[in-house]
Every structure is written in C-alpha cells, then in structure tokens.
Design a protein around this nucleic acid. Structure first.
Length: 418
RNA sequence: GCGUCAGUCGUAUAGUGGCAAUUACAGGGGACUGUAAAUCCCCCGCGCAUAGCGCUCCGCUGGUUCGAGUCCAGCCUGACGCA
C-alpha cells in the first residue's frame, strides 16, 4: 500500500475547505486531522497507548534535528523507524507518522534565540519592531556577538550547535533527507528555512528563494535514496511553502513548489496573528487541489478552524502538550489556568464529556497534582488538551461532511472566545 | 543563678552604619502555535488608579549618631554550657 490522498467532501459553504483521507503504508488519516507532536519520539508525559486510546490521535510527528542528536538516526533506523521505536502501533502494526525536517530549528535556534520571538507575531509587535529598527539593529548586533546563535545559514545548508552539548553539526537538504529516511515516517518534509515574522520582505524573499532551491535538492535526494532505510517502504515527501506575511511571496512559493513533484505540501514560516488565515488562503488557492496540505505548527482552536475553512487538511502543534504541562487547560469556554486558587476546591470534572479519559478527574484534583508537582499532572493535562483539539477537529470534519461547517465554527468560537 | 550564642516578610536565609532590606521555597497572577520548555516572566510590609509617592518596618524599650537591622544598655524569648 502506497501513499495517496482522496478528497471525499468539498464544502459548499467554504470553497477551499474539504474533507478526505490520506492513505499511508501504515493506515489512513481522516482529514482534516490534528497530528500530535512527539518531537523526540515521545509525546511528552504520554505512553503510546495513551496517545492512541486516551487521546485518539491518528498520527504522531517527530523531529529530525532532535532525533539526529539523540539517540541518533542510525539507532532509530535499527528500531525500524521512530514509530516502531516509540511503540506507536496497534495490534503489532505501526500507525501513521510524520517527521519534520529540522527547518523550524533554523528559526528557533537562530533568529528567535534570546529574543522571545514567536513564529506568530501580532501586528503591534511588527510595527513596534519597525519603528525601532535602527536602534534595535545596533542592539542585536551587539547581542549576537555576546551569545552566539546556535544556527547559521548559508546557501548550501545550516550549521547547528547541539542544544545538548554545544557540538557543531551540519544540515543540508540532502542530509535532512538521509536522516528522515532513517527515521522512517510515512510523511516527511523538505528542508526549509523558517523565517522570523519580524524579518523584512527583502530577507523573506531571499530565504524563500533559497528554500525553493533546497526543495528541489530535497526532492532529488529523496528520489536518489528510494525507500526508507528503516522500513523498506516508500515515504511521502512534502515541500514547504514559505513567504512570510506577503501575498506575492506566498503565492509565488505555492506556485513554484506546486509545480514540483511533491506528494503534498507543508505551509510553514511566520504569520501575523490576524492574517494567518488569509495567508493560508493565498497558498491554498495556488496549490494543486489533489494533494494534501499540512499547516506546520498551528494551533490554537481558532487558528485550526480558520485553517480548515481555507483549505488545510492537517496540522500539528506543540501547544496542547506544552501549555498543558504548564497548567493551562482548554475548555469549551476558553483556556483556564488550573493552578489558579479558585480551582483548589472545584469539584467539577476536568472534561465535561463523560466519554473522555479525563472525565473522572476533578479540577480540584488536577490543581492538587500541579501544586504538589506530581508527574501525573503533566500526563492528565496533556491527555486532556490533546483530546480537546483532536475532538475539535474530529467534530469540525463531521460538520464539514454534513454541510454545516460554518455553523459549527461560529458557535464554537462564540462560546470559546466569549 | 551565672555564662556563651541567637532572635530579619508564611518558612528558611543574606545583610562593611545610608535599607522597604538578599536569596530560595511557599503564596498570587501571566505567557507559551513545525518543543533548547515538567519552562519562562511579573507581584509578594501597608496605602495610593502605582516608571513614582506616603506611611510603617528587622523580639521589646531606651541610648549613641546627620543617619541604626547593623554600635551600646536593659528587658523578653530560645538553644547550648556551667552550677
């Protein structure tokens, strides 16, 4: 069984929105789908059984940079790939999986380091940045010489410093492909450069053009390598669209990559908080209709619904596990911080839905676990948040298939952001 | 009874005479979007709609000093030692 994508429903309400099935060698992914992030071949605080049964995740996404550093992609290959290594299986059969290329680390260990920059910027942040540009440039140059960046980009690739021991490592598009062939995921990504949302258009253009050249090299290397060294199966390679918050760049990137022989597409890079959905629309209007589109690193409930509306099939995001570990839980009425004093004595269940794994646990109990610094706090909060987003996308999919997506979206948002 | 040492924010601590006073934990709040994240940031004497101002403060009472948590005396409390 090889990779393919089949659209089963086109929304009449939203021209770009669709529902379908991604067929992988290890099973199907019903789309739209939320894909759980397990960077180091572990969804932090969860066992594979919990990811599968308590969360109901369809696929797990791991990271090239992290698994290359530890335990090393050769060892992962010896396991038969990262999904097998982490026991991401059911009845002895491996389940669908994805790896990211390490492109995001070009940003998070490079431009973003030490600046508190997130890949999503508010328009206030951007204008504040622009108004102080000359002042800031001086400061940043000074800062950069103090604590050296951990990623340096050139035309051929990126030199990384290991976050573990500071040792130097070199990633090129070819290297990223080789590593991802060892990691053995069903879907993997071309090596790209994720830019800062604060970067000027001239740099966005330069980085995008380079990403396109890297895309071609990624594709060539993937063809040369053939089947996965870990699984002996053919993997699906997705190209990554960049272009920042600029329409002409986004459309150009989507057209250029869309013309290349990728199995699907990732949409990466930086966005303006308010215009993320617009950027997604530009891209999805240009990409070939019949190939799946993955929105990298998004998101928040609102972002996901807007993305689905604008043609996205899958997403992944660290938010549910990260904010969960740090005490924030999703509810239908918005986020809550379970460590707030008022939850000490709150006997209501964490999950309103009685079918959920976490339904039997009270807010008061979770509050206690967090205050007592118990490990189970992270586990339960992660399960709850992942289930929340997974269920949200599952419900959105159903609504889309039944022709009531907009009504579903609007009523969810009305309550969540009340 | 005598002697030695010690008493600083809920707790544990820092503190050359210029101090509303260090640090940690606890407490209160916030952030987190392809995970350098079980992390990070803010507040934590009281009052003031607060880049500041005022008041009250380091066991208690006095004293020395322009100025005392810091020096001196007495008292109270605690630990240890001698009886």
């Amino acid at each position: 069984m090889s990779f393919s994508f089949e659209i089963t429903h086109n929304s009449k309400e939203a021209p770009l929105a669709r529902s379908g099935v991604i067929h992988t060698p290890h099973g199907d992914i019903q789309t739209p789908a939320f894909i759980t992030v397990g960077t180091k071949a572990t969804v932090k605080a969860l066992t594979a059984e919990q990811i599968r049964d308590a969360v109901g995740a369809q696929a797990v996404l791991a990271n090239t940079y992290h698994l290359y550093l530890e335990p090393g992609d050769e060892i992962v290959a010896k396991h038969g790939g990262f999904p097998k290594m982490m026991n991401w299986q059911k009845d002895g059969k491996v389940l669908p999986s994805v790896t990211d290329s390490g492109g995001f680390q070009v940003f998070s260990l490079g431009q973003a380091l030490g600046h508190g920059v997130s890949k999503i910027a508010t328009s206030e942040e951007i204008s504040a940045y622009e108004s102080t540009l000359s002042k800031r440039e001086e400061k940043e140059i000074a800062q950069e010489s103090i604590h050296e960046k951990m990623a340096h980009i050139d035309e051929d690739g990126v030199t990384f410093k290991s976050v573990i021991d500071g040792s130097k490592h070199r990633f090129t598009p070819e290297r990223s492909m080789q590593i991802q062939h060892n990691l053995g995921a069903d879907i993997f990504f071309a090596f790209d450069e994720c830019t800062s949302p604060l970067a000027p258009i001239t740099y966005q253009k330069e980085a995008m053009d380079r990403t396109h050249r890297w895309a071609k090299r990624s594709l060539d290397e993937h063809k040369r390598l053939g089947v996965s060294a870990a699984t002996g199966e053919m993997q699906a390679l997705f190209g990554v669209v960049q272009g920042g918050a600029y329409e002409e760049l986004r459309r150009e990137s989507a057209k250029i990559l869309g013309a290349m022989d990728f199995d699907g597409y990732g949409i990466g890079g930086s966005f303006t908080k308010d215009d993320m959905a617009t950027a997604v629309r530009w891209v999805c209007e240009e990409l070939p209709v019949g190939k799946p589109r993955h929105l990298l690193g998004i998101g928040e409930p609102l972002d996901m619904l807007l993305a689905i509306e604008n043609g996205i099939d899958t997403f992944d995001c660290v938010a549910p596990t990260r904010i969960g570990r740090n005490g924030t839980l999703y509810t239908l009425d918005g986020r809550i911080n379970i460590t707030n004093a008022k939850y000490k004595d709150d006997m209501s269940p964490v999950s309103e839905d009685a079918t959920w794994y976490t339904h039997g646990y009270t807010k008061s109990y979770l509050s206690h676990l967090f205050r007592a610094d118990e490990m189970l706090a992270a586990t339960l909060a992660s399960i709850h948040n992942l289930k929340f987003l997974t269920a949200l996308v599952d419900d959105a999919r159903k609504a889309l298939q039944e022709g009531r997506f907009m009504e579903f979206k609007n009523s969810f948002i009305a309550r969540y952001y009340k």
